[in-house]
Nucleic acid binder design. Structure first.
Length: 277
DNA sequence: CGCATTCCCTGGGTGC
DNA sequence: TGCACCCAGGGAATGC
């Protein structure tokens, strides 16, 4: 499941592969992948556009084209593949196929069909774009600091885990890294955020950025289904300390890692190392 | 407004 | 071997 580091890896890989290329053909095989418009309008607005810029907000990919921005959220299992002109790009889960001007095909693939694509005029302000309606600052945005998180937290009754997953506070952290961040910060994921101090949030933010940067460097995590557009597998999963480690020995104290449910999400923790506040 | 619940989807896992 | 059933999970929509 791609989170900020995997999305960043996909973006950089695609930038390297398709920057400057023009779309010459579009096949929409599953129209529900597209938000707020039908397949013919989607096709019309993207046809003959070039891939110019590559950016990201949280887990959203933003492809700057000539006249529009193509925004993509991969959700659980969305991925891009690039096929050479003599390769067969079709499969059961290939939902949108873009043919490029050099003959290669860029294919959006999504087993669970949870992903979404959005198209916006380039001059439309980000806050007015529906995709970003509930998306706050990116985790690496300079406007996110310990004081900001503290101010956000003190008015909420939620838990640390849910706070980290709340994209309107800070965008980019998902279920895997939320567990890792709570573990490194030594807080129980069910800690109520209004009990945490500015200093605590400095620790949490430092760990968030360290973990996300480490994962970007490793090329993203591969768990279950994720592979980046070139099939580059991240090695960061080897560095995960608690997520999906139920029953394993805690790397710090040796006690078994436990799995609980917090806010409806599977959550892994060490009860000994992570304390409620 | 905040917070909880439901829904979207399908492959994998389980039980018989 | 196959079938019925349940579950995970990000985010939008809906409910209170």
């Amino acid at each position: 499941m791609p989170e900020l580091p995997e999305v960043e890896t996909v973006l950089r890989t695609l930038e390297h592969q398709i920057k400057g290329r023009q779309i010459v053909q579009i096949e929409v095989r599953y129209a529900k992948m597209i938000d707020a418009m039908d397949a013919s309008e989607f096709t019309k607005r993207l046809m003959h556009q070039h891939f110019v810029t590559f950016s990201r907000v949280g887990k959203y990919l933003v492809f700057g084209m000539d006249d529009v921005n193509l925004v993509v959220h991969l959700r659980m299992e969305g991925k891009f593949y690039i096929y050479q002109k003599d390769e067969d790009p079709y499969s059961k889960h290939a939902h949108i196929v873009f043919t490029l001007d050099d003959g290669r095909k860029l294919v959006y693939h999504d087993v669970r069909k949870f992903g979404r694509m959005y198209i916006y005029d380039k001059d439309q302000p980000l806050p007015l774009q529906k995709a970003f309606q509930h998306v706050g600052y990116d985790a690496f945005d300079v406007r996110v600091d310990a004081n900001y998180l503290y101010q956000q937290a003190k008015k909420r009754k939620t838990t640390l885990k849910q706070f980290l997953l709340d994209q309107s506070v800070m965008a980019g952290v998902g279920n895997i890294y939320a567990d890792e961040i709570a573990y490194r910060s030594k807080f129980h994921p069910e800690t109520k955020v209004y009990h945490l101090t500015k200093k605590d949030f400095q620790t949490i933010l430092d760990n968030t950025r360290m973990i996300l940067k480490g994962a970007i460097k490793a090329g993203g995590t591969t768990i279950r289904s994720y592979t980046s557009s070139l099939g580059v597998d991240g090695k960061f999963q080897l560095q995960l300390k608690v997520h999906m480690k139920k029953g394993d020995a805690c790397p710090t104290c040796g006690k078994p890692i436990e799995k609980i449910v917090v806010g409806g999400r599977g959550t892994y923790l060490c009860r000994t190392c992570q304390k409620r506040k």
